[in-house]
Design a protein around this nucleic acid. Sequence first.
DNA 1: GGCATAAAGTACCAAAATAATCCTAAATTT
DNA 2: AAATTTAGGATTATTTTGGTACTTTATGCC
Lengths: 147, 147
Amino acid sequence: MIRLGKLTDYGVGLMTRMARDGADEQTNARDLSGRTGMPLPTVSKILKLLCQGGLLESRRGVGGGYTLARHPRDISLADMVGVLEGPMALTECAGEGDCKCEYLADCGLQRQWAGINRRLQATLASVTLADMAAETDSCPTLEGKGA
Amino acid sequence: MIRLGKLTDYGVGLMTRMARDGADEQTNARDLSGRTGMPLPTVSKILKLLCQGGLLESRRGVGGGYTLARHPRDISLADMVGVLEGPMALTECAGEGDCKCEYLADCGLQRQWAGINRRLQATLASVTLADMAAETDSCPTLEGKGA
DNA sequence: GGCATAAAGTACCAAAATAATCCTAAATTT
DNA sequence: AAATTTAGGATTATTTTGGTACTTTATGCC
C-alpha cells in the first residue's frame, strides 16, 4: 500500500498549519492540539521529533513554543518524511550498504532498487511545505509535473 | 521509512527470476522455492497472489505451474506493487474518496496528497519487469531519468 | 478409474512495527 | 518560588505483517 505512518501524516498537517499561520509565528503543542482535535501527547511527540530533526525551533518555559526553523519554501516533504520515518529505503537492498537479503542473495536487484529509491526521494524533495500550505486551487508544483 | 513489505520484495524477486529464465518458461512453486531458498509456503502464497492479480497464469495438476501473463516489458513495477500491497495510498487522504481524516478534517491537503500520490505511482509505472530483469551494468530506464 | 501432482482457497498463529500515553527532568518567564 | 512549556525516556496496547498449516479442486498419467 505504500502508506505513510499516521504520525507522519499528522506531522505534515501540523507543519502545514504552522506555515499557513505565518512563517514566523510561534505556537505551542497545547494550542495546536486544541485547534486540531489531536490528543496533546501525540502533538507533543510529533513536534518534539520535528524539532530534533531540525525542522522546528523550540523555546521552553512560559510563553514558549515552536516556530518553523526555515522558510516553508526551504522545507521539503522529503525533509519531513525523513525526520518522522527515517531515511527512505524501499527494500532491504535499496539502502546504502551491501545487499543482505535473507533469500535471493544474488538477485542482482540492488542497483535497480537504489535507482527507484532515488527517484521517489527526488519526487518528495521537489515538494515544499510552501506547496502544501498553498490554498489556491491551482498549485503549479503539484499539478504541473504530474503523472 | 516508506518500505515495501517483504512479500512484495520477494514477489518482485521471483518475477524477475522468471523473466530472466525466459518470458514463456513455466516454473512451479517448488522449483522456485528450491532455487531461492525461500520457504515453499511463502513462495506459494506470493505466486497465488500474483496470479489472482493477473500478472501470472497458472496451470494446475501434474506438470502444472506458473508462467508470466504478459511480456516483461508490459508488466510494470506499479502492477506488481499494486497486486501485492493494494492500491497506493500515501495517506488516508490520498486515495479516491473524501477525506475522512480523524483529525485535521478540513486540512485542505487532499488535493496535494493526491497529486504526490499520482507522481509516485507514475514513477513506479515507468519501471518494467524487463528493466528489473536487465543484468547489464547500465540500465537506461533506471539510470537515465534518475534523481 | 485411481493415483500422484500442483495450484486454490481458507483459516490461523506468532512476531514485529506502530500508535498512543505517561512520567520525570530541565528551562524560562513572571 | 510558582507556573508553564519543552526534553527525554519508558511503557502499553493495537494493528499489521509474515509465515504456516490444512483442505479442496483440477490435471495428467498409469
